[in-house]
């Protein structure tokens, strides 16, 4: 058994150490908000935070997670209250929605380190997240909006 720390909880899994974290989350722990898109870290649908850093969980073996804190979309907030989620809802960003967990995890990691990103900084931070439906214009606007929300309510930044 391996213990990993996901969304603030210590969870045990019998998955083998070579199993990608993506499949541990989805199959073993029932956290299906993190998506499988490419399996090669090319699309970003599987993005989670590892100690706050956006990470492609499809390329991270369970055995390499160790004691690091894993945050998934389910753990970003309990009630869609994270500024990025609020901005995403305000601007109605998703279409099919399949990539959006990954987009939101990349955007929230960006904002945790850069309170007021420029368009170019948003482009760079989210270039690894493919949206096949083409929601990019709203994604960019929503990241700016989330930055505004965080500035007016800095308590959220801790989330």
């Amino acid at each position: 058994m391996t213990t990993i720390h996901v969304n603030g909880q210590a969870l045990e899994t019998n998955a083998t150490p070579d199993t990608p974290l993506l499949w541990v989350l989805r199959d073993h722990l029932g956290l299906t908000g993190t998506k499988f898109g490419c399996g090669q870290a090319l699309c970003g649908a599987c993005t989670v935070h590892i100690d706050g850093n956006p990470t492609r969980s499809c390329q991270l073996p369970l055995g390499s997670v160790g004691d690091k804190a894993v945050t998934t979309i389910e753990g970003l907030s309990a009630d869609r209250s994270h500024a990025v989620q609020k901005a995403w809802m305000e601007l109605d960003v998703p279409q099919c929605g399949y990539c959006q967990s990954g987009q939101i995890m990349s955007a929230s990691a960006l904002l945790a380190n850069n309170a007021k990103p420029t368009d170019a900084e948003i482009d760079a931070a989210l270039a690894g997240n493919i949206c096949r439906c083409g929601t990019y214009d709203r994604i960019r606007k929503a990241v700016h909006r989330a930055a505004d929300l965080l500035q007016s309510a800095p308590a959220n930044a801790a989330k």
Partner: peptide, 21 residues
Amino acid sequence: QKRIDTAAKVDGSALYGIDVK
């Protein structure tokens, strides 16, 4: 009108085929 399906698509709860259990 705001989309009915947005909330479930920002918190990971939206159910796609791949998520069926």
